[in-house]
């Protein structure tokens, strides 16, 4: 079973993502802020990370940088899920190694799950 880490500080959005991913047959763990996210990625590397950008403590871009720097975690695919959407941020995310950048308000949960499946399937 695929193990996904959802890094999202908004409770509703987090619960909805977990609900949808679980009903799609995936195992889901959560992190509500930066330090917790890094800790979980380090101790129990997931197969894919859904990463929000605006987070308490350490922001998503910084987390992404550190994941990609560490050999142990660099290969984990990261999909950025954010409500910031200006061109600059998307480009930055892709440059830092995110496999996709989705603006939460523009995608349904089903579409997000489909993207997750696609990325996992490609591996």
């Amino acid at each position: 079973m695929k193990n996904i880490l959802v890094v999202e500080d908004d409770k509703f959005l987090r619960d909805l993502l977990v609900l949808k991913l679980k009903s799609a047959g995936m195992k889901v763990d959560i992190a509500t802020e930066g330090k917790e996210a890094l800790q979980k990625i380090e101790s129990k590397p997931p197969q894919l990370i859904l990463l929000d950008l605006i987070l308490p403590n350490i922001d998503g871009f910084e987390i992404l940088k550190r994941i990609k720097k560490d050999e142990k975690t660099a290969k984990i695919p990261v999909i950025i899920l954010s409500n910031l959407g200006e061109g600059g941020e998307v480009e930055k995310g892709v440059k830092l190694g995110a496999v996709d950048y989705l603006v939460k308000a523009h995608f349904t949960p089903e579409e997000i799950v489909a993207k997750v499946k696609k990325v996992l399937g490609e591996k």
Binding site: N83, K104, T108, E110
Partner: peptide
């Protein structure tokens, strides 16, 4: 404006997702 847009999008995303789950 950027911050307001981001803050507004968060609850709007939640509503969008909830309604979509109910309707689907």
């Amino acid at each position: 404006v950027s911050l307001a847009a981001h803050q507004l999008r968060t609850p709007l995303s939640a509503i969008k997702w909830i309604l979509r789950i109910l309707l689907d």
